[in-house]
Each structure stands twice: as structure tokens, then as C-alpha cells.
Design a protein around this nucleic acid. Sequence first.
DNA 1: AACGCGTATATTGTCGACATTTTAAGCCAT
DNA 2: ATGGCTTAAAATGTCGACAATATACGCGTT
Lengths: 224, 224
Amino acid sequence: MSPLLNTPVTITDKIFVELRQQIVNGEIVAGAKLSEVELAQKNTVSRAVIREAINRLTACHLVERKANIGARVVTLTAVGLQELYQVREALEGMAARLAAHHMQDDELAELRTLLDNHQQQVQKDENYYQAAGDDDFHYHIILGSHNQHLITMLLDGIYHLSRMYRVQFGMSGPRVKQAFDEHKQIVQAIINRDPELAELLMRRHIVGTKNSVNSERLDNIPKT
Amino acid sequence: MSPLLNTPVTITDKIFVELRQQIVNGEIVAGAKLSEVELAQKNTVSRAVIREAINRLTACHLVERKANIGARVVTLTAVGLQELYQVREALEGMAARLAAHHMQDDELAELRTLLDNHQQQVQKDENYYQAAGDDDFHYHIILGSHNQHLITMLLDGIYHLSRMYRVQFGMSGPRVKQAFDEHKQIVQAIINRDPELAELLMRRHIVGTKNSVNSERLDNIPKT
DNA sequence: AACGCGTATATTGTCGACATTTTAAGCCAT
DNA sequence: ATGGCTTAAAATGTCGACAATATACGCGTT
């Protein structure tokens, strides 16, 4: 199982991870064209490697490719962000529901420890939280669903695009404390083995995040 | 926009579509190894073409690839089917919700026409319905969501795997009439612009289909 | 006879070159 | 000057060959 592909075995894996990070961080700017020859020279690898890496990025929805024309980094738009949150609402809501069914006791213990750590972080340094804490939380819930399709779609597919929006628009926001409380409620529902409540709360949590983002920084997004 | 890629422009497109169909129909049996050289010879194309096609199939969750070892067609299992339906429940439920928001009048008219045709088919030949009618219905709802991510994930990603299960296990079942009635209810909710009811009904519809399948043919599925 | 080691074979990963398509430039005609 | 056609350049698509890795076989040892 290699959801995040932390141990790249082949050269293509390595290039893929590097390009993905550069795209998410905006080092390769949104909307930019990905020239195969240029990237091949810059990374000192064959075009075949670049091609395969680009194909994987396409599967992650980070890149769009047109036949005989080329590949471009996706452009970040207001509606795109909206649509992404809608998909997350559906999938992560289901993940929370399934987590309430399937999470083992040791997983729950881990989740609790995670929350405790986050609580301390929230009281000290608010910035840390949104950066890593939120991701960690959702990450655990997703894995807790024990649904391989769900896990793959979210972690390999949508996760990085989500981070790309967050990084490039610098969403941190005043929702830190509230989001943490919502996390606590979700965990409680899971511990209580209440799938429907867990799903409901997770969906509200994501919708809340979406709305807070929309009212904050939406104007910075370039025209469609 | 090429959700189904009906007009393959490049050779790789053509091979990809062909392989996908062969896999869905079971001509390439589930669990089989996909040898690159063998497929290259058999189709009179380069290995590069085969490789790229296999990569796309991997993105569709029809094939699993391990580095330095090779690619195998996914194996169909009872839990895999269960998980697939859970993902569909989440995504198509959201699609129905969004369709109630965003479907235009002309799209609704099309949907109504579709239902009328299906009604006639149901009264005559029950087999036809599950074969094409159900797919058509869900297809329209998904497109009606007007959410590009949702559309891509479902039509490019999950749709074919769903069909693979259905084709290879020959699910037709006695739910034909009931499923049609459920479709009618969903459409009515969409026409009434009632997103929550539309989502609720769609989720019930999919859960119902899942349960009817599970009690029918689940035994035919080979061991995990 | 069974186990482990080393070699041979087959398969995947990577590379450079050719073919085809798109894009850009230049020229001619109006 | 502008518009369209022809041609040159660059990019993607496809190919065959080499390199690296995994699998299979055979041998020797216990």
C-alpha cells in the first residue's frame, strides 16, 4: 500500500513526486505548460519518464493533457474549488460513516492521541494547526473507513489538489478553534459507533470550511 | 470533454478503449497478468503504447500495477463490490443533489423523455432495462450535476468498474420494476428542485441495488 | 529428498531517434 | 496593411534497443 508513495522505487516515481510537490507549492505555476523536452533536460531524464509522470499527474487531476497539444497545470478557479469541496463533502462524509463502523480500538486510540496533540498546538501556535493538523485528522478518518476505493480516490486523487488550493491561496483563517471543536465532535460520534451522526458532522465540517474560505479569499482567484 | 472517449484520436486512445472493453467484458479475465510484450505483439503496436494504455487503465481502477513486476487485471471480490457501491452511494447521491440545483430545463426534458422510453421498455422486455436503461439514467443524473470533478471521477473512474462487476456476474435481477419506480421518484424530486430528497432517494436506490445484488449472486464470486 | 545459492531467462524500466501533428513564420495576393 | 496559403520549426506520438530488476532453473550441499 503506497497512498503517498513515500518510498519511490523507480525514477518515474521520484520525478512524479517531485513534480507533484512543485505543482502543489506553486513552484510550477498554475496554468503553466509542461514541456516534455524541457522537463526532461532540466531533470536529466528521458522524455519517457516525464511522460509517464505527467500521465500520473493527470490522473490526480493536477494536470490536464490534450492529445497532440500538451499538458498544462490545472488552473485554480472559484468554481473549481467549490466543486472540489462538494466531492470532498460526499466522499469524506461517507468515510466518517464507515469509520464509525470499521475503526478498530487501536485506531481510535491513535485518533484520540492525535486530537490531544492538536489541542496543545491550537493553544500555542494557531498556524500549525491548519497546516498539518487538519490534514492529519482527515487522513486518519479516511484510512479508518477501511474502504480501499475511498482511500485511493481521496489520498491519491483529491488530497493533493486540495492542498494546492490551500497552499496557493494561503487559507488559514479564523476557523482554527471551531474546526478543532468540530473534529472533537466527529471523533466522539465515531467512538459512539454512530455512523449517521459521524457523516452528518463531517459534512457540516467540510461545508463550514468551504463557506469560510469562500467569504475570505475568493477574490484573489484569477478569472475563469 | 471526452468522458467516454468515443473518438479516439491517438493509437494509445484506441488501444486503451479496446483493452478496457475486453477487460469489462471478461475477454481478458479478471486477475490476469497483462504482459507488455505479448499485448504489443498481439495488437501490432509498440510497447510504449501498451504501457501508456495500461497506466490509464490503472487510473480507472481496472488494473493494478506493481513496480518492476507488472500489471494485473483487478480481481473481483465481494468486499470490492461492497466498497464500490459505497463510493457510488456517496458520489451519485451528491450528483443527484447537485442535479436538483443545476439541471437546466432542456436537460430535464431530456431526462423525462428517457424515462418514458424506459417505461415502454420495462413493459416489453425486462432484460433491456438493466442492460442500458439504468446506466443511461445514472449517466444523465451525473452529467446534470454540472460538477466536473464528480463527472470525471464517476464516468472515467468508477463507471467501467461497475459495469465490469455487472457484466461478469450477470446481475439483472427482479428489481427492474422497482428500480424504475425509484428512478421516477428521483426525477420528480429533481424537477421539484428538492436537493435533499433527491440525494436521499438516490442513496436509497443505490443501497437497494447493492443489497439485492448481495443476496443474489454473491456466492459466485471467487475467494478473496 | 529438501534447502540454499548462483546463474540464465524473461519482464519491466529507461533511453535516444524517427514519425506525425501542431504551431509559427514568411510570402504572396488582394 | 490584411488575409490566406506555403513552408519551416517545435512539440507530441510512436518506435526499437539497451539497462536494471525480478523470476525460474539447475546445481551442489546437507
